[in-house]
């Protein structure tokens, strides 16, 4: 008899950790952005675009959005694993969610660097 210790594929711990790391990244970004916006006396198109034309802001906004998409993937995957019993349906939903999130990532780059 082979004494094999049954363990998982280990992606559970990695995803658990990534979900928390991305959460912290998003929290720091959101609080900083909200703080900056609250300090603006009148927030118009010029102030808004001036903020997002900074390369630093664009970079950290993209970091925020990519963190958001990865975080969303782990969350949606957990929900689907819990409630969708059929493996075939689960696979289809997973593929659709991954494709949607990848498209959002590409779209985010276009939005941030396209104006």
């Amino acid at each position: 008899m082979v004494n094999r210790v049954v363990v998982g594929a280990h992606y559970g711990l990695r995803d658990w950790l990534i979900q928390r790391v991305t959460a912290v990244v998003m929290a720091v970004y959101i609080v900083s952005l909200a703080g900056y916006l609250l300090l603006q006396t009148d927030l118009d198109y010029d102030v808004w675009t001036a903020l997002f034309s900074s390369q630093t802001v664009r970079t950290f906004t993209l970091l925020f959005l990519l963190s958001l998409f990865y975080h969303a993937w782990v969350g949606i995957r957990d929900i689907v694993m819990d409630y969708v019993k059929s493996a075939a349906v689960r696979l289809v939903i997973h593929v659709l969610v991954i494709l949607a999130l990848l498209l959002y990532a590409i779209w985010s780059v276009q939005i941030l660097w396209g104006f």
């Binding site: 198109y45 808004w48 997002f52 969350g75 949607a100 985010s108 939005i111 104006f115």
Partner: peptide
């Protein structure tokens, strides 16, 4: 998650 495309669209319109 379901609101994501709408929120991205709003960001796009606010900046474009």
């Amino acid at each position: 998650f379901f609101a994501l495309p709408l929120l991205l669209l709003m960001l796009q319109y606010s900046l474009a």
